[in-house]
Design a binder for these strands. Structure first.
Length: 153
DNA sequence: GCCAACGTTGGC
DNA sequence: GCCAACGTTGGC
C-alpha cells in the first residue's frame, strides 16, 4: 500500500512551478538524518507527495507530486562546489540520499499553514508539531483532508 | 529581522 | 555519554 508524504521547499530555491516546468526532479540537498532515512528506506515509487512552500508568504501546501525513483545517493554531497557539500560523504559511504519526484497537480489555491492549523483532523501532523522536518510521512486521513481542501471544498 | 525550536558538534 | 555551544530552520 502506498504511503503519503509531505516535502518542503523554499519557493525561491525550487517551487511547484519549477516542478511543473521540469516534469520531475531529484530531491537533493537534504541533510537531516530522519528525512534521509525516509527517502533511503521508506519512500516507494507511486507514493504521493504534498508539495509545501516553506519560508513563503504565506507558507502553504501548493500541490501534489509522486515518487518516481526510490532512494539513491545524493551526488551533491560529494561536490565541493555545492552548497550542501559534505566532506564525510564518499563513494563507499554516500551518507546522503535522495528520491526523484514528478509533478502531478498544482492546487488552484494554496492551502496556507494557518488554515491547516485550524482544520479538524490535522492536529497531529508533524508539519504542525515538528515544523523543521523537511520530509515527513502524512497519515491517510490527513492526506485526504488536505487533498479535499486543495480541490476547493 | 527576530527569535524559538531543535539538530549537530565537540570538549570533557 | 553528557551537555553547552553553535548553526539552521522557518514562522511570524
Amino acid at each position: 500500500m502506498p504511503n503519503n508524504w509531505l516535502m518542503k521547499s523554499e519557493p525561491g530555491d525550487y517551487s511547484i512551478d519549477d516542478l511543473e516546468r521540469d516534469g520531475k526532479t531529484h530531491w537533493d540537498g537534504v541533510r537531516n538524518y530522519q528525512a534521509r532515512n525516509f527517502m533511503r528506506d521508506t519512500m516507494k515509487v507511486g507514493d504521493e507527495v504534498l508539495f509545501y512552500h516553506s519560508n513563503a508568504k504565506p507558507p502553504a501546501v501548493v500541490g501534489l507530486a509522486k515518487v518516481v525513483r526510490e532512494g539513491y545517493p545524493d551526488h551533491t554531497a560529494r561536490d565541493p562546489n555545492d552548497k550542501h557539500f559534505d566532506p564525510k560523504a564518499s563513494q563507499d559511504d554516500p551518507r546522503w540520499f535522495m528520491v526523484d519526484i514528478a509533478f502531478v497537480h498544482k492546487f488552484a489555491e494554496p492551502i496556507p499553514l494557518a488554515v491547516l492549523r485550524e482544520t479538524p483532523g490535522l492536529e497531529k501532523m508533524a508539519l504542525l508539531n515538528r515544523s523543521r522536518l523537511s520530509v515527513q510521512p502524512v497519515g491517510e486521513d490527513e492526506f485526504n483532508i488536505i487533498l479535499r481542501l486543495g480541490m476547493g471544498e
